[in-house]
């Protein structure tokens, strides 16, 4: 191996050091201002747009989910309310029926009582009437007895038979 040439291989030349420094620093400046800045900004903006879009999609999904759960809640509430209403209605019906039943029983009892009373009254009236008739009849009989001859037995018997004939036992 030729050491002299190898030596020149690892000896940096002043010219290239100078030009590389100048060109590199200019390149950083120029590319930084006119290329990297707009490109990186654009990429950043796009990434922000994408992440924003994703976030808004996510939030829309959440909103929808919330809406759905709300709907379900409302539905469940409605169902509950309906059940409550129906229960109430059933109770109302039952209470109405029960009330009607008690009313009817009471009414029938009242009617029966009044009928019983009336019957009693009629019976009493009839008894009174019968009593009166018996009294009258008795008086009539007594009158007739008194009027007829009560001397002999036959006569007495005839009289009784006679009287008995007259008695119209109803």
């Amino acid at each position: 191996m030729n050491l002299f040439i190898l030596g020149s291989l690892i000896t940096p030349g002043i010219g290239l050091i100078f030009w590389t420094s100048v060109v590199f620093l200019l390149l950083v400046g120029i590319l930084g201002k006119f290329a990297w800045k707009p490109i990186l900004n654009a990429i950043k903006t796009r990434e922000k747009n994408i992440s924003d879009a994703l976030a808004s999609a996510e939030s829309a999904l959440n909103d929808m989910r919330e809406l759905k759960s709300n709907n379900e809640k409302i539905l469940a509430q409605a169902r509950e309310e309906r059940d409550a209403l129906m229960k109430e209605a059933r109770e109302a019906k039952e209470s109405i029926i029960a009330e009607a039943k008690t009313k009817a029983t009471k009414e029938s009892e009242r009617i029966l009582a009044s009928a019983r009373e009336q019957i009693n009254n009629e019976k009493n009236a009839a008894i009174t009437d019968l009593k009166n008739q018996v009294a009258t009849l008795s008086i009539d009989i007594a009158e007739k007895i008194l009027k007829s001859d009560l001397s002999s037995d036959e006569k007495q018997k005839a009289l009784v038979n006679n009287l008995m004939k007259d008695v119209n036992l109803n």
Partner: peptide, 13 residues
């Protein structure tokens, strides 16, 4: 590099 990347920067604009 300057031509390439400024043209890309323009494309973004």
């Amino acid at each position: 590099l300057i031509l390439l990347f400024t043209s890309i920067a323009r494309a973004y604009k």
